[in-house]
Computed example of a mutant assay.
Amino acid sequence: MRAGVGFNNSHYTNLASPTQSRADENSLYYVAADRQLWQSHVHDAASRGIYGGFSVMGAPPDLNKVSQYYEVRLYAKGLFDSRPSDQISLVATDTVWSRFAVDAAAAKGNLVHRDAKAISGTYTAHLGPGIYASLGLTYIDHPTSITYTPQIGHALNFSASTSIFF
């Protein structure tokens, strides 16, 4: 489990009163936890198994367009004996926009939504020392930030990547 708070004293536009002088401080907070739910090889490779976790993040809605973020995740390492270093993940998220930013965009006549939800699945293969390849599929409801057009509703994204660590 981990938690934290951040502060920033840069000048920020106050979304609740954008014509007023800028705010001089901003903050954020987060709480996250992960736990191994099941071990597949207790004695020789304790990290292999299934994990679950969550994250909750927040920031003042009068200073930040993203005011809340929620994530739930389920992931596994080494489920297959033939691939003991591979990982699989399933992650669901909800990004909540600032009510002040949403209301300001709606007042201008824009179509708005208050959040964006997503669910993704990823398989990461360990190809060699420091070399990984990932394939993922993500479905996003409301893939834009706050405003959208009637043609934009959902997105289905495929991703492929290679990472090399040295």
Rank of each mutant, 00 (worst) to 15 (best):
V91K: 06
D115I: 02
F54I: 06
P84V: 01
D103A: 10
G52K: 01
V72P: 06
G136D: 03
R48T: 12
Q36W: 08
Q87L: 02
G128Y: 09
P18F: 08
V31D: 08
R2F: 01
A160L: 07
A125D: 01
L90Q: 07
P129I: 00
H11E: 15
A32G: 12
A101G: 14
S17V: 13
L127W: 00
V102K: 12
R2C: 07
T122K: 03
F80D: 15
A118S: 15
D24C: 07
A107D: 13
H11C: 11
A107E: 09
Y132N: 14
G153Q: 10
V66S: 09
Y69S: 14
T147D: 11
A59H: 05
A45W: 11
L28R: 14
G128V: 00
Q20P: 06
N110V: 02
V5G: 08
P150D: 11
S82Y: 12
S82Q: 03
A125C: 10
L74M: 10
G49Q: 05
A92W: 03
P150W: 03
D103P: 03
T13L: 15
Q68W: 04
Q39K: 10
L111V: 05
L90Y: 03
V5W: 12
L137A: 13
R35E: 11
A45N: 09
V5F: 14
P143F: 00
A3Q: 05
S17H: 12
F54E: 10
S120P: 05
W38S: 14
L79D: 08
H142Y: 00
P60W: 04
V102F: 00
N64I: 08
Y139S: 11
I119F: 02
H11L: 15
M57S: 15
S17F: 09
Q87C: 03
K77E: 10
L127N: 06
F54S: 09
R22E: 12
P150Q: 12
G128C: 02
